[in-house]
Design a protein around this nucleic acid. Sequence first.
DNA 1: TTGAAAGCGCTAACAG
DNA 2: CTGTTAGCGCTTTCAA
Lengths: 346, 346
Amino acid sequence: MQTFAQLSHKVTIADIARKLSIAPATVSRALNGHPAISEKTRKLVEKTARKLQYKRNNIASSLRSGKSNLIGVIIPSAEINFFGSVVHGIEKLANEKGYNVLIYQSNESWEQEKKGLEAFLHARVDGILVSIAKDTTDYSHFLDIREQGIPVVFFDRAREELDIPAVVVDDFRGGYDATVELLSQGYKRIAHIPGPLHMDVFRNRFLGYQAALKLYDIPFDPLLVVEGYVSIESGQKATEQLMKLPHPPDAIFAVEDFTAPGALKQLKAMGKRVPQDVGVVGFANELFGEHITPSLTTFDQQTVTMGREATGLLLQLLESDTKTITKQKIMLEPIAVIRESSQRKK
Amino acid sequence: MQTFAQLSHKVTIADIARKLSIAPATVSRALNGHPAISEKTRKLVEKTARKLQYKRNNIASSLRSGKSNLIGVIIPSAEINFFGSVVHGIEKLANEKGYNVLIYQSNESWEQEKKGLEAFLHARVDGILVSIAKDTTDYSHFLDIREQGIPVVFFDRAREELDIPAVVVDDFRGGYDATVELLSQGYKRIAHIPGPLHMDVFRNRFLGYQAALKLYDIPFDPLLVVEGYVSIESGQKATEQLMKLPHPPDAIFAVEDFTAPGALKQLKAMGKRVPQDVGVVGFANELFGEHITPSLTTFDQQTVTMGREATGLLLQLLESDTKTITKQKIMLEPIAVIRESSQRKK
DNA sequence: TTGAAAGCGCTAACAG
DNA sequence: CTGTTAGCGCTTTCAA
């Protein structure tokens, strides 16, 4: 006897029900571990489902239940290792918990960030994880989304005042530690190249820098702070400006690992030796920091953990039926990765 | 602690229909640009939809139409710039065309790659883009997916024999050009550190290398080929082995931009100057190649274009109602990026 | 413990 | 050109 089971015909719970002469509802319940189903039928249904290669139609399920089991993630750029790594953490936990992950790149643009949220709304995601774009200074779109009942959690690039849960690195601590690392190596005039100061991450590192100076009784000199915009080029330019000062610095704390290689490059071009003449510290532990010359001292931001934690927060929000939004914030410790660029002693 | 009691009931086409005293079907048609709808009603419906802030429920739409408007993408690792960049190209075109993109990282593992496909099946994606994992040597899961009627397109890491459409770089040409670049700079003994040779990309670059040697009448010396596994460490080890040969090479063509910095590192450790003593060429144009010392000569793989083209192929497959899978392959030219590491002359 | 029936919001087939 | 009708596959009352 040959069955012409069409390969393309999708198996539904109705098929299973028919085969076992029970109701589709029972099949559904059995498959979803409903408590009021006898062990016997559950086993039977599961076995038949396996045999028929049944796969739940998530779409139908979503329509009925109102849950898409989709999580949207907005990152500024997939070309920065850091975010790739965070996404890895996000996906892992999300997949474990039966969610799929949609990615949207804002390319650091406010417009695209808004478009991303719009797209996610349209895709009916259950919740959204965001790392804010550099260009964003108006944050109302996040509040709008939340008003629509879709929970939002920030990671890394958060905005404190919005009262939206977030997982961040202790950037103040990071800035502080970075500066202290340089000071303890005997450098005296520490410059700082911050990122755009409207962003919490960068402002906090800046504040940490100032706090460290204070501890060492070094007066803060605004001339030693030249704002960059998070890129190798801007690191070069800022460094050039710094080194042309009447009293140039003997160390530079660059706000992250794109600015720092820019600084190294510029210093090399100006004939300065690192770390002998000038010390340099970065932030973010980008992949290449280990392999440039001199290797870059930096701070690891526990990317995978960050992704996991952010997802955990979001899932918590999704699964608690209270729509209460409690201010929640998880802070991860930055981990020092000491390499050549800051090691004057040795 | 604030509670947001959000009762905003979602607007549906029924609401619009009621408001205008027309049939829901008419609203649907108007909204979807159905040709048989009067300009007048279309305008009216659109206006009302906007006024009520209507948003189409994609899930319901998917259930009915059998199309999820989701594209699944499997990449080996989001921490490699190259893939982040390709994904960028994919997302851009996909979003333009009204598709959302699901990402899954295989982490170079065959098991996870299979799990990814399974997850996509479950999410009812319309089509899948894949760059094959390093560990994969059994390809049947791709054929299974295709049998389920879901089109698959490879990008970069393809498998010729499977007869699945693909967008790749002309790796043979790349390997050839890389080798010729070194030869034309006057290097005589060119070594090659290939990646796993079961992968088309790496094998083709290897073949290109051999072809270039042949052209220059240089006999192929198997001792000068030490297989690596695509990582900085493996680049170091292979280089060490190469340089310890009785007749060590005076140039190395490393299969990609992780192996190449490993080679540079090892050469430096052994007191060799690059490019004076030994020339080095990589492949992939990873971000950091420009910023290491010496800067790395490499080949750009047109990542964004690759993403766009792969998506284009997939959409074509999705939109043509013929389920014929014609063998289709798009080849992009690798673009030489000549930097210090290969420039002995000058 | 299970079944029957009613939709979730949308689109497609068939009329008119 | 528009309306009517009938589901897509699932979950969830409400009954039994």
